[in-house]
Amino acid sequence: MARALVTGSGERVAAVAERLYAEGLEVVTAAAANELDDLDLGRIDHYVQLPVAVRPLGETLVGRVRSFLSDGLLGRFALVERVLPVLVESATVVLVSGNTPGASLPDDEHSRLALLHVLAHATRAEMATRGVQVTVASGSRTDFELVRFALRGGEDPAARLANGSAMGEPPEEITAKQYEDWRTEVMGLLQVHG
């Protein structure tokens, strides 16, 4: 039986998990990376990462933004890193946007989405030899649509970043070999300069 993992906070985790279960999958849920330590993950065929609720802390606006980024968006990198070893060959990963800082902090939706795309590219590079498909999906997608991405992969045009070209053309397809080469280069730089 195929297994799915859904992480994030709020009622949406249960709703997405329920839809995956209705598709015949065994489903495991967790709200944070430390909760994964208490679970027997075994092998994961489909991973849906929903946003986590963050309560920014800090004495200054800069401190609260830092807290929002480190506990919310950057915390999502820790979750993916923890899940990487249990992803099976040809697994699907869906990174769902939606970490909004609320009215008390300045927001830059494009930058938040760009960080999710950085996470997606790093995940693709790390898992290039195993054929893992990674989708960045808009938080405005329905639970049904998120489950469809989890089961079939694909691209969400609503979560696409502009590539800077005047025509708005999508970026060229990056092959698994190119991701492997990029990963090797980055890891070499980290070892030499880290």
Results as ranks from 00 to 15, higher is better:
3 R>C: 13
114 A>L: 15
31 A>G: 15
184 T>R: 15
73 L>N: 12
101 P>K: 04
102 G>H: 12
84 L>D: 05
95 L>W: 00
80 V>Y: 02
119 L>Q: 09
94 V>N: 06
173 E>G: 06
115 L>I: 00
58 G>W: 07
113 L>N: 09
78 A>I: 10
128 A>M: 02
142 T>K: 10
121 H>D: 14
193 H>M: 13
136 V>W: 01
50 L>Q: 10
171 P>D: 09
53 A>Y: 02
11 E>C: 00
138 S>P: 01
44 I>H: 04
97 S>A: 15
69 L>D: 11
73 L>S: 13
92 T>I: 00
176 A>V: 04
47 Y>C: 11
38 D>I: 00
189 L>I: 04
179 Y>D: 07
41 L>E: 11
50 L>H: 09
98 G>Q: 11
101 P>I: 01
92 T>P: 00
192 V>Y: 11
170 P>S: 13
160 R>E: 15
40 D>I: 06
87 L>H: 02
78 A>P: 00
40 D>W: 07
149 F>H: 12
193 H>V: 14
178 Q>C: 00
98 G>C: 12
83 V>D: 12
122 A>C: 04
128 A>R: 02
68 F>S: 02
44 I>W: 02
6 V>A: 07
187 M>D: 04
67 S>G: 12
177 K>A: 15
2 A>N: 14
55 R>H: 13
193 H>T: 09
132 V>D: 02
48 V>K: 09
3 R>G: 04
135 T>H: 01
30 A>V: 03
140 S>Q: 14
88 V>S: 15
54 V>F: 09
111 S>N: 01
60 T>F: 05
2 A>C: 06
12 R>A: 06
52 V>A: 15
21 Y>Q: 14
22 A>I: 03
76 R>Q: 15
49 Q>D: 10
42 G>K: 05
126 E>G: 00
73 L>F: 08
27 V>A: 04
173 E>P: 09
192 V>C: 04
34 N>F: 10
147 V>I: 05
124 R>I: 01
75 G>S: 11
154 G>V: 09
46 H>L: 08
62 V>C: 06
160 R>I: 03
139 G>D: 10
101 P>G: 15
61 L>K: 05
13 V>R: 10
165 S>M: 09
171 P>Y: 05
62 V>D: 15
1 M>G: 14
47 Y>F: 15
18 E>I: 02
32 A>V: 10
44 I>Y: 03
45 D>E: 14
118 V>I: 10
27 V>Q: 07
89 E>I: 03
135 T>M: 01
56 P>L: 02
67 S>W: 05
21 Y>M: 03
128 A>V: 07
